[in-house]
Design a protein around this nucleic acid. Structure first.
Lengths: 373, 373
DNA sequence: TTACTTTTCGTTAACGCTTACGGTCTGAGT
DNA sequence: ACTCAGACCGTAAGCGTTAACGAAAAGTAA
């Protein structure tokens, strides 16, 4: 049983003091380049790992992190924020202070929010980069200033971001395709609606859907793709047009959150019961559609878990200076009418009594249910 | 911003010392009943929460926990153990020492393993109670001695166990039923095979399957249930018999890990391509069956996540003296041919380089993928 | 009363890391 | 020669909790 190597061990080995070792390991000023490299080398060979308990105990600096996301138009971002709060509460060690900055629509105000976060000098940022182009320069600036940025839900390539937390888009699209094929017996016309093909997240889902459909169900025909640009009326009109053009359409995969307009368009075209719907996310308006079997299945993107993971990755980097992984991809959950209630119950419980449990061993007879996404 | 209340605050408030406060809060001997209750009352009114960093730092007692599970006949328990190791490694704070005790078959040697764990004086136990009856007295003894026990995969009722980590059995069964109904167009004969109805886990899945099938697909007929008692030959023979008796069987839901014998029985009866298989778990022998579409879908029970959660709950109790929740139920994952590769890739990556990442911010350009169940 | 045990509680040194402060040494400027 | 700035590094006081040690008080037996 080898004892943990600490600062004093490194210091003794080199004949210096713990203060010097500390400064060298943290790139603090006041250490000659030579001793610095010697310390860093020795730390590596000895396999030094900082004792986080001691670190937390000594310098109690409140971590401030900014969470930049969309306003709660749908429940998705509320869930993400809830997951972040949960994880922050679970990390009892650190005093984490979270500032929520929201913007009303995609690409509207997110640059200002990012700028404000930078200006206020936060220690880290979690953001939903709906328009990566606009954020590019600011995110690079954050990277230069060693302010870690974690992207959630979708990636922002080449921005120097620390990590990205998202659903596995390929698994999502492929699962949707395989389900669609199974439900339809391997034949028929299907279509896809998405927000925009320039969003990598949606493009990847579409590609996976198309490829899986082609590989596993070669007899099925994938029609043209609808881009609704996250505008409800556009989704309604374009899908109405689609249904008019293809009266024999058998299935549709809705990767956007705007599934309701598409459903209504099908209702208007009297084609609701002829079309197999596979949607994305789970929000109140979708519940009756699943229950009535208008929607055969929906792919749940686990927003709460995404939030949790985002904060966990960011915190781990802030605490240890190391990042566990730069790409965290979650497996999506499948929700159908059969298991719908369990997901609803989970959402209810998690948003309900804030950690109601926490009873001591003796009182462990009563059971409380808690779901983990 | 209120400062955290610490031991010294309580001590000052009552005119005693921190040592007394500490002893009182931990029920250590050497404190008069009156001061003890006064301290506990004051701690409550002041809202005292222990500083875990200080606690870890000061008393470095290695936590010893025993993990009692099945030997690696299938990959399931290997994954569970891997998840436990992962989580232990992630909890950098504590020095956790894990002792793995395995037993070869269900109910064979698990009592001895539990007894050995108790004898060796571990601080906590994670166990798979395959025969809860046999463990009952021993688990109650552990409970009396304040040794927390966390059940994984299946519950052991009325044993005083601290918590249980498992898949949501109701969601599993209901999802399987809904999928089965969708795949088969809402009609046909289906059957279920399971290990034994006395195992609550299997009984619940069966019940959920039956109820969902009845509610959503009233035209489908559920045939008699096969109990294979986890014996491969029994599974093979009983399912051969089933196929002979019902040549028009359209689907079968295999909740045990013994799906291969059932598949082979169907192959022998020349009925493989006529029957829709929905299986449980994901192990190497099942992969070609999914790829060839002999198995339409499998319900993945996320063993790695179960292991992680089990250790996390146990550790949280050991560290804080409180248990976050007594029942952790995970949502199962659905694996079909379309998204099969993503799950295989995940297993590969996670069992591969042990946390290969951990690079500093500057080198964050290269991406490594890591899945979270 | 004394001597001795037991209960009850205060004191204090860790635990490993951070950081403010002060010290030494070099080299340049006067 | 003296001063002074600056670079470099050692020292030590915390952070909040634990636990070992010892002191004081209270009870017990002679």
């Amino acid at each position: 049983m080898k004892r943990k190597v600490k600062l004093l061990d490194i210091a003794h080995e080199l004949g210096v003091s713990t203060g010097t070792v500390h400064r060298a390991l943290h790139n603090h000023p006041g250490v000659s380049p030579m001793t610095k490299s010697r310390v860093q080398q020795m730390a590596k060979t000895l396999g030094y790992r900082p004792n986080l308990a001691a670190r937390y105990l000594s310098s109690r600096h409140n971590l401030r992190i900014s969470v930049n996301t969309l306003q709660g138009t749908t429940s998705f971002w509320d869930e993400v924020r809830a997951g972040i709060s949960e994880e922050a509460r679970a990390l009892v060690m650190e005093n984490i202070e979270i500032e929520y900055r929201t913007y009303p629509r995609l690409g509207e105000g997110e640059e200002e929010a990012f700028e404000a976060a930078l200006k206020s000098g936060v220690d880290g940022i979690i953001t939903f980069p709906s328009r990566p182009q606009g954020l590019l320069s600011r995110m690079r600036r954050a990277s230069r200033n060693s302010i870690p940025v974690v992207c959630v839900a979708t990636d922002a390539p080449n921005t120097g971001r620390l990590a990205v937390v998202s659903i596995d888009t390929l698994a999502s699209g492929a699962l949707a395709a395989d389900l669609m094929g199974s439900f339809l017996g391997g034949k028929g016309k299907v279509a896809v609606t998405l927000s925009s093909l320039v969003i990598t997240e949606h493009a990847e889902k579409h590609k996976a859907f198309a490829r899986t459909l082609h590989d596993l169900y070669p007899q099925m025909q994938l029609q043209e793709t609808i881009e609704d640009h996250d505008i409800e009326t556009e989704a309604y009109e374009k899908s109405t047009e689609l249904f008019k053009k293809h009266p024999d359409l058998a299935g549709i995969y809705v990767t956007t959150e705007a599934s309701i307009p598409v459903l209504n368009a099908a209702r208007g075209a009297q084609m609701l019961d002829k079309i197999t719907f596979i949607t994305t996310d789970l929000f109140p308006a979708l519940v009756p559609e699943i229950r009535s079997r208008a929607v055969a299945a929906t792919i749940y993107q686990r927003p709460r878990t995404q939030g949790r993971m985002a904060l966990r990755v960011l915190h781990e980097f802030l605490a240890e200076g190391e990042c566990p992984s730069f790409q965290v991809t979650l497996a999506p959950h499948l929700v159908m009418r059969g298991n719908l209630d369990f997901f609803l119950q989970r959402q209810l419980l998690e948003s309900g009594p804030q950690r109601a449990g926490a009873v001591r061993l003796r009182g462990a007879s009563s059971d409380m249910v808690e779901y983990f996404g």
